[in-house]
Design a protein around this nucleic acid. Structure first.
Length: 459
RNA sequence: GUGGUAGUAGCUCAGUCGGUUAGAGCAUCAGAUUGUGGUUCUGAGGGUCGUGGGUUCGAGCCCCAUCUUCCACCCCA
């Protein structure tokens, strides 16, 4: 049988894992710095937990898990008159936010609100793979739930900025507010077309105003109401003039003005901490398809690279309500680790791959007294230095050949220090630095101390 | 779900107009050389040319189907 893996999934080899962990570690460190605590939830959820939360398109992309047991046998025998809920009642999680909402409701009596959690786990989507799009990928979520305060939005924007600064990436943070979009729909008298309108204006970047107009005409909007959308679509760099003109447009919409007020407040807070406004854009066309968002929405794009959004999120006022816990508002964002990886790879932003496991390799040159190696290597490990012994002695056959194999092993694993015990040093262990080729004999009495000194001065 | 692109050794790829036994580099393994972190030389293994049909005297090459990859749409991280 020819080995293969499912479409849209990947193996990760050591160099890739080194880089992926560099991303995860950086993100995790920032999350912790702001006081978030980690949770995990199962890869699979009950199908009813997942369906209906992501819009029609999202439902189609859910991976469903076939029931095990007698039902499966029936499928083979019966006529094809089968209902989905008879053969599948579980699905792979589509994101981390909905499972989090489910978690919060289930654990509400253990949680002290506001609850700040982070979660780094894979999610699955039955999408067709392409650039920056996988069927299995990792999301790194941070959410605050049980707090209405716009301080949370400000904090999340700071987290975004800090993460990407640490990773050396230049990004643009796009923000908008669903209330503002609702307000617009209200003002133009098309509130019932909210979804159609958001979907259409979301494409403004690609298809332009005429394209948006065409799509909305097809949905039954009038020429006059579409033209009123135009000022919203043209917002870009943040400034007070834009806010003013939007206020003028929305003055008769309570919800729209609430949106304006929220955005203004967030901007005022950011301004008070001297946030760099070159990085942030008020994008009237930012809508986001996930239909549980109700307030601020955020999306991050990498500069100078063609790639979908690498981070996105927003406020959801009543996601827990679906699971029986109403009036709990949450806000959160999700970093797409795999896309961040692809961007960093394309821009050569990763640090050099250094072996982050073995620091010291013991060459194994003689068959007798293998226990000598064990004694020494344990001393090295005891002080916290990662060390390994080459398992096959070099004097079993052609010793030159076998020694060469050991050199190549050290080289291929990029191990910075090697220790050899051989006759020319009177059978005393000698350490060698791969970086500058210097060596030093390590005396038995001060073996570990000398090794530490050598490592510190030859790294 | 729609459209396009490609699929030849573990990897990167040649392969002429459809014509003899499908090649190279790298990697792997083996031997020689080398006095200590990728020396050099020699050799070997490794392929149902993605899979299944079809056209043809003859298919890696042409046609159809299918799977997979990459890309665009849709949507999204």
């Amino acid at each position: 049988m020819k080995p293969s893996i499912p479409k849209g999934t990947r193996d990760f080899s050591p160099v890739e894992m080194y880089r992926r962990n560099y991303i995860f570690d950086t993100i995790k460190k920032v999350f912790k710095k702001y006081g978030y605590q980690q949770i995990e939830t199962p890869a699979m959820e009950n199908l009813e937990t997942l369906t209906g939360k992501y819009g029609d398109e999202g439902d189609k992309l859910l991976f469903k898990i076939l029931n095990s047991g007698p039902v499966v046998d029936q499928i083979n025998n019966s006529d094809a008159n089968i209902k989905l809920n008879e053969i599948s009642e579980k699905g792979l999680r589509y994101d981390l936010t909905v499972p989090f909402a489910r978690y919060v409701v289930m654990h509400q009596n253990e949680i002290n609100f506001p609850f700040k959690r982070y979660q780094i786990q894979p999610v699955w989507r039955a999408d067709r793979p392409q650039k920056g799009r996988y069927r299995e990928f990792y999301q790194c979520d941070v959410d605050v739930i049980g707090s209405d305060s716009l301080m949370n939005e400000v904090e999340l924007i700071q987290i975004i900025d800090e993460v990407f600064t640490k990773l050396g990436m230049e990004v643009t943070i796009k923000i908008n507010n669903r209330k503002l979009l609702s307000g617009i729909c209200e003002v133009i008298g098309e509130s019932d077309k909210f979804i159609d309108i958001t979907v259409a204006i979301d494409k403004y970047d690609k298809i332009g105003f005429d394209g948006v107009k065409k799509e909305l005409m097809e949905k039954g909007l009038t020429d006059a109401s579409i033209n009123k959308l135009e000022p919203l679509l043209k917002t870009s760099r943040l400034d007070s003039i834009i806010i003013e003109s939007l206020s003028e447009l929305l003055k008769n919409s309570t919800i729209g003005m609430k949106g304006i007020e929220e955005i203004s407040t967030i901007l005022a807070y950011l301004s008070s901490i001297n946030f760099n406004f070159d990085k942030i854009v008020l994008d009237g066309t930012l809508a986001r398809g996930l239909n549980y968002y109700t307030g601020a929405i955020i999306e991050v794009k990498a500069n100078n690279v063609s790639m979908g959004s690498i981070c996105g999120g927003g406020r959801y006022d009543d996601l827990t309500g679906i699971f029986g816990l109403p009036n709990v508002s949450g806000v959160g964002i999700s970093f797409g680790a795999d896309r961040i990886y692809d961007v960093m790879n394309e821009l050569n932003l990763f640090p050099d791959f250094n072996n982050d496991s073995t620091q010291v390799l013991f060459y194994n040159y003689f068959t007798k007294d293998q226990s000598v190696y064990l004694g020494l290597i344990n001393k090295v490990r005891a002080v916290g230095i990662n060390a390994e012994l080459y398992p096959e002695p070099a004097d079993k056959g052609n010793s030159n050949k076998l020694q060469k194999k050991q050199f190549e092993y050290a080289k291929s694993k990029n191990i910075p220090f090697t220790i050899a015990i051989e006759e020319i040093n009177n059978w005393k262990p000698a350490v060698k630095s791969a970086a500058n080729k210097t060596t030093k004999i390590l005396e038995t009495e001060s073996f570990v101390e000398d090794l530490i000194l050598f490592i510190d001065s030859n790294i």
